[in-house]
């Protein structure tokens, strides 16, 4: 392959193709493939969904149905850090709403929004299972507990 051709190859697409190839014979592969695709691209652009549909031979309407059904899937780009504020029962009774309010003010976005500098995407979730430390939030895969309106600002500042 010549150098010019190599430039045309999208490494993400190559990776996605490998994922599809690995799962193509597997039953029920759609959701794991979409999860991997989202890992690769950060979200699920329409072109990627079409690509997955062709690869797995699944009608696009069904893929769109699945993507919009599950909270995990994103059709829009996400920020560098995904901030999930828990408003589960335990967090609710221990003042999760106040924490959320502070975060919303701090970042200037609401549920589902991404900050202009792409630093954070804010999501409200119902229970991350760390109720003992309510109120809680999760930034990427890290859980932060015993939040207050004061310490939350400090935690946010640690993420670039």
């Amino acid at each position: 392959m010549c150098e010019a051709c190599e430039d045309l190859i999208d490494p993400k697409e190559t990776e996605l193709d490998a994922v599809i190839a690995r799962h193509v014979r597997e039953k029920g592969a759609l959701i794991p493939v979409l999860q991997k695709a989202q890992e690769i691209y950060g979200y699920l652009p329409a072109e990627v969904l079409k690509h997955v549909g062709r690869g797995l031979r699944i009608p696009l309407s069904k893929i769109y149905g699945v993507v919009t059904f599950y909270a995990q899937f994103r059709l829009m780009p996400m920020g560098r850090n995904v901030l999930r504020v828990c408003l589960g029962t335990a967090c609710h009774v221990r003042g999760g709403a106040k924490v959320l309010e502070t975060i919303e003010q701090e970042l200037g976005v609401k549920d589902g929004g991404t900050t202009e500098d792409q630093r954070f995407t804010l999501e409200i979730v119902a229970c991350i299972g760390a109720c003992g430390l309510a109120p809680t939030m999760m930034i990427n895969d890290e859980v932060h507990g015993r939040l207050t309106a004061e310490n939350v600002t400090e935690i946010l500042s640690k993420y670039e």
């Binding site: 589960g88 609710h92 119902a126 229970c127 299972g129």
Partner: peptide
């Protein structure tokens, strides 16, 4: 798929 808010025994 322990989704009940306030439950984390399965976790």
């Amino acid at each position: 798929d322990e989704g009940d808010p306030g439950a984390f025994m399965d976790r």
